[in-house]
Each structure stands twice: as structure tokens, then as C-alpha cells.
Design a protein around this nucleic acid. Structure first.
Lengths: 210, 210
DNA sequence: AAATGTGAAGTTGTTCACAGCT
DNA sequence: AGCTGTGAACAACTTCACATTT
């Protein structure tokens, strides 16, 4: 039996698309219309060849002898990342970190809409600007179903994380941004990205003792 | 001129040490004294051989035919990561995200002590539990010097990030946890870890459109 | 017998070198 | 002439296979 060959695109290459996108927006704001792989790569902190290789995973977007059209590249990256339309997300687990993320305006700015906050202890939480309604866990399936939510931010305590993840997946979520410091086990078709602040700090700590 | 050869330990291996450490603590809490690479690897979500390889970058800690002593491994990892003593950190940039991180108790729990919060707009910020004093940027060098701070969390707006990073480095900081969505350029001896929430979401978004 | 430690093989990701367009 | 696109070389990381130790 033969393995399917689907040319694997490195996960890191997809992360780099986000970086390129940011750099391109800066270029666009500076009125630049065309950019070479050399210039864009420098802005993104990578080698020109890597930038070119990354882009060709998805097609051919440049003009030889000239470079890339800024606007067109921005377009194609946002198409690829699926950030052309507002993506709805829920945040589950409204402890310190969850509250923090709720009051953080970064999500909206980048094309994600927080349509619900959930916790075992529902409450009315007063964020800096506006009151946010923290709903009980039992309305989670309803909200996910109605808004066709595919993405969730998970900030529950580690002991509860696996169980809540299972629920989310059952209700239709396929991508989880996990802040709980445990390794979630999920089916292959579900994508989990982990963010672990303590781990980042520990990692830095290692490099301090040169 | 010869380059120093110091057998390079993969950066990822060091991240995994943090994972192992968490798993080991759970095992210890369950009264388990000895663990095989197979069991520990499973808990950490890696292959047993990888766990063994990771550990042998730093020495030999196991007993053949038996496994690893939980307590001893915990000890050696925290020694390596430099988390045996409380590591002081400063947080610079107290916008939404900075405030979020300030009220997040995770740092203290993991062995890091936030000894100062700084912003161009100093203020008295009322966190959930206790009032936190947000100091002006001009006392930054004093605080860093007095506490011998080597680690900083950077949450300023992207436009200011490079400049603030330069200052931090000048004052003696050698490790930066950067939340600003730009690529910092720093000397080789400085370690930067980037956390970019928008990027994580965009990355997930890619995988949603299967 | 059981499980570690490790050189060698395999895999994945990055960089080079240059052919091929414009 | 200049800069992209890409197969091939290279480097980094992971996994295998097994010798080694308790």
C-alpha cells in the first residue's frame, strides 16, 4: 500500500506567512507597490531563498526580474490563511488569563470575533470598556452551533482542559488555541496550537545561565 | 579563526524539558518514584527515544533495566532551566495585554517574580487582588540594576518595541519574551522568544479550511 | 529480563546554485 | 540585467536498531 504523497507544507512556513503579511502591510502603508524577495525577507528576518520557497508552496506569485506585487501578495496570503472574513471564536475558561484575553483587543484587530465567553461560573464581568457576559458551559453547544464556530481559545485549568477540549470537538470545533499546560490528545483532523507562557519563560531562563 | 563547537542542543529539546518537568511533577504527586522513558514519553506526547536522546544531551540520569528516578530528574531539569531560585522579571508596556499579564498569576506560580511594571504612562492600576504600581520608563535602569534583572516581558506597541528592546539590553537584560508582532533585531548573545497570539490564530485559521 | 544510551539511518526543513523568465 | 522558481546539496532533528548495563 502506497502512502499519499500530498507535498507537505512545513507548519513553520505557514507561520511565516503571517510574518510576511505583517511586513507587506507595512510596505503598503509606505506606498510601496513592488518588493523583491531580498527586501521582504530582510523585513521578515528570513533568508530570501526561504521566502521564495515558502511562497512557491502555494503557487507562483512573482515576476522574474521585478519582484512581487505587494497588494497581490497580501491578497493571496489572507486568502490562504482564511482571514478575509471575520472568523468567529469562543473563549472558554474565564480565570485570570481568560479575562486577560477578553480585554485584549488584539483578536478583533486581526480579524477574529469573540462571540462568546464561557466558564463553569457564569458572571457579568466588567472589562475596561464594556460589560462582557460570561455564559455557563451548558449554552456552549447552542452558541457554537448557531454561529458555526470552528475555533476556540482554551484557558481552563489543566485538570479540566482535556474534558473541555473533548466537548468543544464534539460540538464542531476543529481548531483550538490551548493555553492549558498539558498535552491535549485529539483526533488527527483537529488542530491544536499551544501557547505556554511559563514554558517560554523557562526556556529563556535556560539561556540566561549562558 | 575557529568557531566554538559546543555540541548544539536543539532549542526544541529545551522546550521539551519544560514539558517533562510538568509531567514529572504530576507523577510525583501521584506518589510515583521511578518512571521508564516509555511511560514518561507517553505522558509528554513524544516518542521514548526522543525523551532519552533529549536527556542525554545533558548527561546520564537513568538506570538501565529500571528507568529514571522522578525526584532526581525533576531536580536536574530545574537545575538546568535555572528555575531553582525565583527569577526576577520586569514587564514593560502596560496596555491591555500587559495588564492582562500582570493580573495573570501564572508567572509567580512557575518561579518568576514580577518586580516591576513599566509604561510611558505611569499609573496606579487596580488589579483584581492588589494595586500594582506602574512605574515610568526612566526608573527602568535603576530597577533593573538593583534587582540584577536579566529577563523582561515586552508588551509595548510594535512601533516602540525595537527601541524599548534596545534600552532593556543596554541596561543588562539578556532574555526577552516579546509579545510585539515584529521581528526584533538583537545581538547574538541576547535571547528573544516571541509570542504572537494573532499569529497563532491565523495559523489555526489556515487549518480550518482543511 | 528490562530499559537505558547511542551511532547510524531516515526524515524534515533550509540553503545553494543556477536555469529560466521578463 | 535582474530577480524568481526549483532541483540538488546540506543541515538539523528524529527515529531506529541494538549494544550495554543493572
Amino acid at each position: 500500500m502506497k502512502k499519499v504523497v500530498r507535498t507537505e507544507i512545513p507548519r513553520k512556513a505557514i507561520y511565516r506567512l503571517s510574518v510576511y503579511s505583517r511586513c507587506l502591510h507595512r510596505l503598503e502603508n509606505n506606498g510601496i507597490h513592488t518588493v523583491s524577495s531580498e527586501v521582504l525577507a530582510k523585513a521578515a528576518g528570513v533568508k530570501p531563498t526561504q521566502l521564495r520557497k515558502d511562497l512557491t508552496y502555494f503557487g507562483q506569485f512573482g515576476t522574474r526580474g521585478l519582484g512581487y506585487e505587494v497588494k497581490q501578495l497580501i491578497e493571496m496570503i489572507s486568502e490562504l490563511l482564511g482571514t478575509k472574513s471575520l472568523q468567529p471564536v469562543v473563549i472558554v475558561g474565564i480565570g485570570n488569563l481568560g479575562r486577560a484575553l477578553l480585554s485584549y483587543r488584539g483578536f478583533e484587530r486581526e480579524g477574529f470575533e469573540v462571540v462568546g465567553a464561557f466558564d463553569v461560573n457564569p458572571s457579568q464581568y466588567l472589562s475596561s470598556d464594556s460589560p462582557i457576559d460570561v455564559k455557563a458551559m451548558d449554552v456552549l453547544p447552542k452558541v457554537i452551533g448557531e454561529h458555526v464556530i470552528k475555533m476556540a481559545v482554551l484557558c481552563v485549568p489543566p485538570a479540566a482542559a482535556q474534558e473541555v477540549a473533548n466537548q468543544l470537538i464534539e460540538y464542531g470545533v476543529v481548531a483550538i488555541l490551548n493555553f492549558a499546560p498539558i498535552v491535549l490528545s485529539v483526533p488527527d483532523e483537529i488542530t491544536v496550537n499551544n501557547v505556554n507562557l511559563a514554558m517560554e519563560l523557562e526556556n529563556l531562563s535556560y539561556f540566561i545561565n549562558e
